[in-house]
Simulated scan of single mutants.
Amino acid sequence: MKRYMRLYRVYLNNSFKILRMSTANFVIGFIAFLAIQISSLLFLQVTFGRIPSVNGYSFYQVLFIYGFSQIPRGLDHLYSDYLWIFSMRSVVKGEMDRYLVRPVSPYFQVICERVQFDALGEIVVGVVITLYAITGITFPNPGISLFLGFIYLITGCMIYTSIKTICASLAFWLKKSIYILQSIYGLSDLTKYPMSIYPPVVRSFLTYIIPFGVVAFLPSELIFTSTLISPISLTIIGMACLFTLLASIIWKKGVKSYESAGN
Rank of each mutant, 00 (worst) to 15 (best):
M1G: 06
M1A: 10
K2S: 04
K2R: 02
R9V: 05
N13H: 08
N13F: 13
F16H: 07
L19I: 04
R20W: 13
R20Q: 14
A32V: 09
L34Q: 07
I36M: 01
F43E: 03
L44E: 04
T47W: 06
R50G: 02
N55L: 10
S58D: 14
F59L: 11
F59K: 07
F59S: 04
L63K: 12
I65P: 07
S69N: 11
I71M: 10
P72S: 10
F86M: 14
V91A: 06
E95L: 11
R98P: 00
G121W: 14
I123G: 08
V124G: 02
V125A: 15
G126I: 09
V128R: 06
A133W: 05
I134R: 04
I137E: 08
T138N: 06
P140G: 06
I144M: 13
Y152F: 15
I159K: 03
I159M: 01
Y160G: 01
T161E: 00
I166F: 08
F172C: 08
Y193N: 15
Y193I: 15
V202M: 15
V202W: 08
L206A: 14
A216S: 07
A216N: 12
P231S: 04
I232N: 09
S233Q: 13
I236S: 03
M239Y: 08
L242E: 14
F243R: 08
L245P: 08
S248L: 06
K252D: 00
V255Y: 00
S257N: 07
A261T: 00
N263Q: 03
